[in-house]
Design a protein around this nucleic acid. Sequence first.
DNA 1: TTCACCATGAAGCTAGTT
DNA 2: AACTAGCTTCATGGTGAA
Length: 575
Amino acid sequence: MDWSDSDGNEVLDWESDEEPGPGSSPARVADRAGPSDETCKAGPSHRPLVSHFMGMGFSEDMVMKAIKENGEGDSEAILETLLTYAAIEKCPENIDHSHNNCSLASEENNSDGDDLSDISGFEDEDFTMGLSEEDKKYLTLMEMGFHPEEASAAMRRCGPDAQILELADSIHAAEVQESELGESTYSNNKPESFSYNCSRGKRKRFAEETVNKRRCVQTESDSSLISIPKPMVGYGLPNQRITTICRKLPESAVGPPYFYYENVALAPKGVWETISRFLYDVEPEFVDSKYFCAAARKRAYVHNLPIQNRFPLLPIPPKTIHDVFPTTKKWWPSWDPRTQFNCLQTCTASAKLTERIRRALEHYDDLPPLTTQKYVIEECRKWNLVWVGHHKVAPLEPDEIEMLLGFPRDHTRGGGISRTERYRSLGNSFQVDTVAFHLSVLKDMFPNGLRLLSLFSGIGGAEVALHRLGIRLKVVVSVEISEVNRNIIKSWWEQTNQTGTLIELADVQQLSGDKLEELMCTFGGFDLVVGGSPCNNLAGSNRYHRDGLEGTHSSLFYDYFRILDLVKCIMGKNI
DNA sequence: TTCACCATGAAGCTAGTT
DNA sequence: AACTAGCTTCATGGTGAA
């Protein structure tokens, strides 16, 4: 059986997509290799300093020039200059400006190396505007090629006032210590016991190994807790000028197929460790959609996609409440400081609550007492209420939520779906712009379209994202338990005049190996396996059954893994 | 301490049917 | 009028991170 693309026009080099290319971090690559012998060429007076920076991966010429510019005394300034040089050197050829509206103007302004104000590496002020100094330091560390967790850990160790150089040193020191102890938390080559390689006969061993893995969770979770990076920007945001982060995937994680798994970031302790362990030790990418739209949505994504040359969907959505809903500005009281929404959930505020708020405010003109303000703001934050009149708040309408999440207007409207059901479906969905940004790297790889296996499809967030990216959907096998959601996808499929094939199935648990093999025989395999399994038992807002990954609904994650693993095996990478 | 969180389930409501 | 099914409303708390 030939599992290559049926069109025979997409021969991908699956092994090389994460190789350090021209866009990879000089800091990172050299860091791993250790200081080079070339250090000796540096002048005697500068030698320790030059070695230090060359050890971080900067070229000798660059270091010498930076020292000359700043003098030897100010290491922090030298480092900033070096980062600027690195940015200038890499930007034009490594960032694909054709896909986004990234302007080179500010880069030109910085090209003399004197203006270091933009060290955070962002062109679009939108994204840096709200960031604290601490956040900016974090981003700088990431641009230097450090892993998000390394950066977070160093910032915890060194405190909020630590300078970049001190933080970088701290990370190096930690690495040295780890290597001396013979264990590396962030190592690309994890111990054998952690890996789970797909191989012949694996399907038979699946159940047994799954149980063993589950058992491992309790004992290992304490020693390798994943910390959530702050700011929650993942491997970078749109219009970020420097994308130097380079990650090396564990061998067993490399496709085909590509996979993309999503769930709530703030899951109970140990959950993401378990998910990551199952999904071939790929570390989650934590992203808050507040950087992509006007509503927060803290999620983690485990995927084996390349992270270079991502581009955002256009038009870029507005990121403040006032920009999205200009009419609310008229009624927005000065004492309500919100500029963005909290997470759009599956339930909305009751009419009684909005009435209680109206009554609480009716006796005051403009400035109610602080206790009233506090009460109203608290409820507004909790339920994402907007001001629609004097002293009058209201929950967001379903079509407004559709817009915020990046879906076409009326995507969930009609077809017999109730209003409550719309809220629930939307609350459970992807934020399309965020997911599309991550999936955008597939556009150049699959110019003729791709074959998608979409598990827990919901209202088709992944499908909509790929479509909006202009990626043709040759085949979509969508598995979704809810009939109304399946109808929504089918309706969208017809309305958008798709030319591919859509197959809708109801239950991931019923998707057997045989059925999967049959589908893959028909279509020649899948290029991408997307899924966001239920979060019911993980979400903080569930006060009844927050039972973790073993909960009734959330344990369906294991079906995502089971199916992905089957696809990997059938695609035959190791057969 | 404060804040946020893809929720749940019982009770009430409503439209349709007999 | 009585019944039913499906939908809406309402009240409810704990965990984890900063």
